[in-house]
Design a protein around this nucleic acid. Structure first.
Length: 480
RNA sequence: CGAGGUGUAGCGCAGUUUGGUAGCGCGCUUGCUUCGGGAGCAAGAAGUCGCAGGUUCAAAUCCUGUCACCUCGACCA
């Protein structure tokens, strides 16, 4: 392909190297994932974007059920008195809560918060539902939207209203709650790495970065192509903090009144932002096959010629029956060339071009989106060929993202090194554990602590910031 | 919330300095020819110039106010 053609691909999308932020905006709008809404800070998720969300939901929900959780639905409005019960929690969320103050023409006696998260609502209900240790554990999840009055917003990454799931569980013992907290982080990592092909770093948040009201917060952190971190999922262990505030007690095995041990965990449509910023390239999206709403798009070439459409439909049926998510682009209003670019922009992993010449040879031209290579494939045993190809693309995207990330993680032992490392990626450092050092690092470099990995193999003895005795291995990065 | 920027056809923009018939590209409609990397020709449809005041014979253009959005900072899944 010549230079001229190469240029055409990119004429509508700002190159990543020029302005990553603008590239992101161009891609999400042009691939028709979302559009801006007439409401400040809100996005409209369009069919293609929502289809990706539905795939994420299916994969996550399947795992939630497999680990013994059930779905429920809680109301969107939370009375102010409920929200005020857990002091640290209120303080954390108060600045970004939206309120309903009027119903019809009447001013409400008590303001109602539009949920920023539902810990308080779950707690209110759990306190009603729990009586005995025999009622435990209760492991509920809900898929819903929440609202946070954010000051600056970006589609998928931070919007005033966003779709997510929030799991809330209560347990008999601290050990069980901790086990749940870590198990769900594993589930998230499994979804991120094996479905979304996004490598993540899992670990515990510092006191400064933990969730308001939690005893311990864990996260998985992904690196975007601009080297910035994106928190892609979190799990929290609340201990008995909320149980004490909401009086969630049960009669224990030895007849004593005890508080439950509680957890919560969530992932959101932000994961879609992570997919875009992890895998996207100059032509647009590159969707991992396991999450792509369309895995294979069939583009007829010279569709007016006899037999072309029929062959496309035949291949469509074969592949659909074999379990693939397939689409035939039978639009007669645009040229094949337009369709090629269109589906590349939309990130479909594999494109099969079928024209008269292919039919004559019992083959199709297969284009793979990850490498943009094109080669003929036989129409015989196409299901096996496609299975292998999609698996290869899935693995390829993960490997590429992992290699990119690993290259940009630098082990640092001085502030100079840390400052330099967070310009392009993550800094892996030893830390004394003092919030003063986190504050200083934030102030000097704009980077925040991401998390403390479970593997705490030391890379030094002294704190990267103050030089005192180091307590923890931790990652620092600029974050979304 | 601070600093900057932008609002003109569905989208992207020119026109504003120097007031004087509302423009361009893409898209859209209809027809014909095309179809292996963003097709061509022809004929069409479409805009209270963000909103509200003011100045003027005359305002997209000048003045005042206001709203929305974007970018960068401070705060956050």
């Amino acid at each position: 392909m010549g230079k001229q053609d190469e240029k055409k691909f990119v004429e509508h999308i700002t190159p990543r190297s020029e302005d990553f932020s603008q590239w992101y905006t161009d891609v999400i709008l042009q691939s028709e994932l979302v559009d801006y809404a007439p409401v400040r800070g809100c996005m409209v998720v369009r069919p293609y974007g929502y289809a990706i969300w539905e795939r994420i939901q299916q994969e996550a929900d399947r795992r939630f059920k497999a680990t013994g959780h059930q779905n429920v639905y809680m109301p969107m409005l939370i009375p102010e008195s409920l929200l005020l019960k857990e002091a640290e929690h209120v303080e954390g969320f108060a600045p970004e809560v939206a309120w309903v103050t009027q119903g019809g023409n009447e001013k409400l006696q008590e303001r109602l918060a539009i949920r920023p998260t539902s810990e308080t609502m779950f707690c209110a209900m759990y306190s009603k539902w729990v009586g005995s240790w025999r009622d435990l554990p209760m492991k509920y999840n809900q898929w819903c939207s929440v609202m946070r009055w954010e000051k600056s917003t970006r589609p998928f990454l931070r919007t005033a209203e966003f779709l997510w799931q929030e799991g809330h569980t209560i347990h008999e013992t601290p050990e069980e709650a901790q086990e749940e907290t870590l198990q769900m982080l594993d589930v998230y990592q499994d979804v991120a790495e094996n479905e979304l092909a996004i490598p993540v770093l899992c670990g515990r948040k510092s006191e400064k970065e933990k969730f308001a009201g939690a005893v311990a917060t864990y996260s998985m952190e992904a690196m975007m192509q601009d080297g910035k971190a994106l928190q892609a999922g979190t799990t929290h262990n609340f201990g008995t903090n909320f149980a004490e505030a909401f009086n969630i007690q049960f009669l224990s095995r030895d007849g004593k009144l005890e508080y439950v041990h509680e957890t919560s965990w969530g992932v959101s449509t932000r994961l879609i932002g992570a997919i875009i910023m992890t895998h996207g390239d100059e032509r647009g999206l590159r969707l991992p096959p396991r999450i792509a709403p369309i895995q294979i798009v069939i583009v007829p070439v010279a569709a007016h010629k006899g037999g072309v459409i029929e062959k496309c439909d035949e291949v469509f049926k074969t592949l659909t029956d074999a379990g693939f998510r397939v689409k035939v682009d039978d639009r007669d209003t645009v040229s094949p060339g337009f369709k090629f670019n269109d589906w590349e922009l939309k990130g479909v992993p594999v494109r099969l071009e079928i024209g008269p010449r292919d039919i004559a040879n019992n083959q199709a031209m297969a284009f793979r989106r990850d490498t943009c290579e094109k080669e003929p494939v036989s129409l015989e045993s196409l299901d096996k060929t496609m299975t292998a190809l999609l698996d290869d693309i899935q693995q390829g995207l993960f490997d590429q993202a992992a290699a990119f990330r690993d290259e940009r993680i630098q082990t640092v032992s001085t502030m100079e090194e840390l400052t330099q490392a967070v310009q392009t990626g993550f800094a892996k450092a030893m830390w004394c554990g003092d919030v003063a050092c986190e504050d200083k690092i934030k102030q000097e470099t704009n980077a925040t602590s991401r998390n403390m990995p479970f593997d705490q193999t030391a890379v030094g003895d002294t704190c990267v910031c103050c030089g005192k005795k180091a307590e923890k291995l931790i990652y620092f990065a600029k974050a979304y």
